[in-house]
């Protein structure tokens, strides 16, 4: 019973935080609501016995990445948006259509999951040690070794790209010298 109550509270906070995040005009407030939403999601992961993922969500997302966001926003000195995203009737219609499609999809997902026995597993079926660090590490260095290594190539490429875009080129330097 307690489990269910905790689930509903954190689920409400997660959804509420996400909605508040996109409803804000001030980017700093948006980031703070996003952190709130992520912390609530971490609680959900921990309830699913995925302790490691829950911890990572707080440390990496709420901790590192969003703090970086805050720094960027403060360094760039971004002010709140002056205008909302109002694009007239066509814009509203498009938004409605896409929202309906996504709601339909969500309904389909919920429908499928509630019908499928395969997915409605309880914690009794989990392997011992599920969700702790060793099983994750073992998978990462055996079955998922290739994706793991490829991610590092992807990061390298992204760094090269970022440096290339931000670097002053020769013409800039020459201009400074003269």
């Amino acid at each position: 019973m307690l489990e269910v109550i905790i689930f509903y509270i954190s689920a409400l906070i997660a959804i509420g935080g996400a909605v508040m995040m996109i409803a804000q005009r001030n980017p700093v407030a948006s980031v703070l609501y996003l952190i709130l939403s992520l912390v609530a999601q971490a609680v959900l992961y921990i309830q699913l016995e995925a302790l490691f993922v829950g911890a990572l969500l707080i440390i990496v997302y709420a901790g590192a990445i969003l703090v970086l966001f805050l720094f960027v926003i403060m360094l760039l000195n971004l002010r709140g948006e002056k205008f909302g995203y109002d694009q007239g009737k066509v814009g509203v219609a498009t938004k409605l259509i896409f929202s309906l499609v996504l709601i339909f999809e969500l309904a389909a997902v919920v429908h499928t999951v509630s019908r499928s026995t395969n997915l409605a597993r309880t914690s009794e079926h989990l392997n011992p040690g599920f969700g702790s660090v060793p099983p994750v590490a073992e998978l990462l260095y055996t079955k998922y070794l290739l994706p793991f290594e490829l991610t590092s190539i992807l990061l390298l490429v992204a760094i090269i790209g970022a440096v290339l875009m931000a670097r002053r080129d020769r013409a800039d330097k020459e201009k400074e010298m003269t």
């Binding site: 998922y144 290739l146 994706p147 490829l150 991610t151 190539i153 992807l154 490429v157 992204a158 090269i160 790209g161």
Partner: peptide, 14 residues
């Protein structure tokens, strides 16, 4: 699908 996605990203970023 996981590796296909990573391949797509390694292609797209450059």
């Amino acid at each position: 699908l996981l590796v296909i996605f990573l391949g797509l990203e390694i292609m797209s970023v450059p």
